[in-house]
Amino acid sequence: MTRQIIATDKAPAAIGPYSQAVRAGNTVYFSGQIPLDPATGTMVEGDIAMQARRVFENLKAVAEAAGGSLDKIVRVGIYVTNLGHFATVNEVMAEYFHAPYPARSTIEVSALPKCSDVEVDAVMVLD
């Protein structure tokens, strides 16, 4: 099986030794996205809703670079530093995903890169 590295300048460049996403066969594995502005490389300022929107915009850009869309995502992993943000992140996710929704986990963590309050990774299957 060959691996194809997915990269786009419409999402933030990796801040470590990893790729934005990797395609193996018809499956694309996304690295976690935090609310970095791809144009400036700086964190989006604002509340959890603004951060979550930037994260989902970044995921959307990587999905499109891989030849897919958010509708092709089958699994989402959400990491938040405060489960009190759960409802807001749900509301923002509903702006980007429509039924049938992907499988999902939401996990509270003690910290995220660059002091982000939210990070999201995903798995997408292409036809």
Rank of each mutant, 00 (worst) to 15 (best):
P17D: 14
E119W: 04
R54A: 15
V55D: 10
E108A: 13
A122V: 07
A7G: 01
M93P: 01
A7S: 15
V118S: 10
L83Y: 00
S69W: 10
S116F: 05
T27R: 14
M43F: 03
G32V: 02
V125S: 03
E119R: 11
A11H: 08
D121P: 03
N82M: 04
E45P: 03
L83F: 12
V44G: 09
A111K: 12
N26A: 13
M50R: 08
E108P: 09
Q4A: 08
V118W: 07
K114A: 14
A11P: 06
A7V: 15
L36D: 11
A122L: 09
K60D: 15
G84W: 00
T8A: 02
G77E: 12
V89C: 10
R53P: 03
V118K: 10
T8F: 03
T2Q: 13
E45Y: 02
I107K: 14
S105W: 02
D9R: 04
S19W: 01
L36H: 05
V109P: 14
I15A: 09
T2I: 10
F56T: 08
R3Y: 11
E91I: 03
Y101D: 00
I78L: 13
G16Q: 00
T42V: 07
S110M: 12
A111T: 14
V89S: 11
P102R: 05
R75S: 05
C115E: 15
S116T: 09
N58T: 04
Q20K: 12
V76C: 01
S105H: 00
S69H: 10
Y18H: 14
V62T: 04
I78R: 12
V55G: 07
V109N: 11
R54L: 11
T8S: 04
E119Y: 04
Y96N: 06
E108H: 06
I107C: 11
P12F: 08
A65N: 10
N58F: 06
M124R: 00
V92A: 11
S105P: 00
M93I: 06
K114W: 06
E57Q: 12
I107A: 13
V120S: 07
F86Y: 13
P102Q: 04
A21W: 11
Q51N: 09
I34S: 04
K60N: 14
F86V: 00
V44A: 14
V123C: 06
A111R: 11
H85D: 15
V76T: 09
V109F: 12
M1R: 13
E45I: 09
V44I: 15
S19V: 05
